[in-house]
Design a protein around this nucleic acid. Structure first.
Lengths: 191, 191
DNA sequence: GTCTATATGATGATAGAC
DNA sequence: GTCTATCATCATATAGAC
């Protein structure tokens, strides 16, 4: 075996990381397989030893992005409402909107996924449901009522605000939307 | 003049209407100029007598969609909060999510526009700002405080919820998100 | 202004050497 | 598994007849 399976796994991860970065930044259709492979330091032809199609890559890239997104990575550290609020602040930050940190695929790929194949949309939906469940569980631990409805409200606000802010060029307006959403969510968490 | 300028205007509108429908439904990159022209009952080559490029069409299609979206069309009929709430209900309906009525470009094209050229993004931003201003004005007439912040909150909720709901295939989850957003917004309007 | 026909370029995916 | 080279397809945009 000239190439270890660990090496293959490494290559695979480089491809996935490149795909997340580029798809989120420029969109699925704007990015070619060759571009993804270039960012992963390989050539076009090598791609098909890892994924059977570009769509298959997209589906797996969404899972990968979800796993590495700041919300999922930090969620287990939210033992208190204060921690939870800090996470909301990080999500609704310019750093996240400008993709200086690992992007949340739910916010960065909404419309893109809506226009994609069923396989891709399934993964998106499952990701959303997992995040909803995890968030509802946390909120329930904090002793909050209607944790399911509250989680839905928070998540749609986070995702909606970031996805809109990201399409704007006016930074003042971006900040205004982000801050306003923060305030509204903090208020809601106090009830 | 073999073709009246009224005729040209008609053709132009058919192209714009087709573009809005197809771009919102399938995405800008998934739709070719030829497909738009086919739905407008013309051939590929005729396109460039009306628009200088596909991107130029996109920018103008967003304005066109905004003008014809249900929110803009019905907004002037909202003399009371009850009317305003009816409009929210229409916006957060499955009919809108499934694009059975004229779609709101802000919700149906968020990510798509984020991945597009500056001209397109400018039009999107201007559309958003106009809607925010109009909504804030209405809310102020209703005697509500912080009408600017409130308008931002309502708009991001509307756009966010619909854009997310649209990417889901599970209808129960769609309805849950939509109803939950309605409730939250109605509650907020009562404060 | 609208048509048919075409130039030109890029894309997803495959074939075969190493 | 990764490379180079290539195929087949489809895209945007243009040229010229009517």
């Amino acid at each position: 075996m000239p190439y270890s399976s660990a090496h293959k796994q490494q290559s695979r991860e480089r491809i996935l990381a490149a795909a997340v970065d580029l798809f989120c930044r420029f969109g699925f259709d704007k990015i070619s397989v060759a571009q993804v492979m270039k960012q992963a330091n390989m050539t076009h032809g090598a791609f098909y030893a890892h994924f059977k199609s570009k769509s298959a890559l997209y589906a797996q890239a969404i899972s990968y992005a979800a796993m590495h997104s700041l919300w999922i990575r930090e969620q287990h550290n939210t033992g208190s409402i204060a921690d939870f609020e800090r996470l909301i602040e990080a999500y609704l930050s310019l750093a996240h909107v400008n993709q200086f940190v690992a992007p949340c695929p739910l916010a960065f790929l909404v419309t893109d996924v809506a226009h994609s194949e069923p396989v891709v949309r399934e993964v998106y939906q499952q990701t959303l449901q997992k995040m909803l469940q995890a968030m509802a569980k946390q909120l329930a631990l904090f002793g909050l009522d209607n944790s399911t409805a509250l989680a839905q409200h928070i998540l749609t606000n986070l995702v909606g605000t970031v996805s809109i802010a990201r399409t704007l060029s006016d930074q003042e307006l971006q900040i205004s939307l982000l801050d306003n959403a923060k305030q509204a969510l903090f208020l809601r968490l106090k009830n």
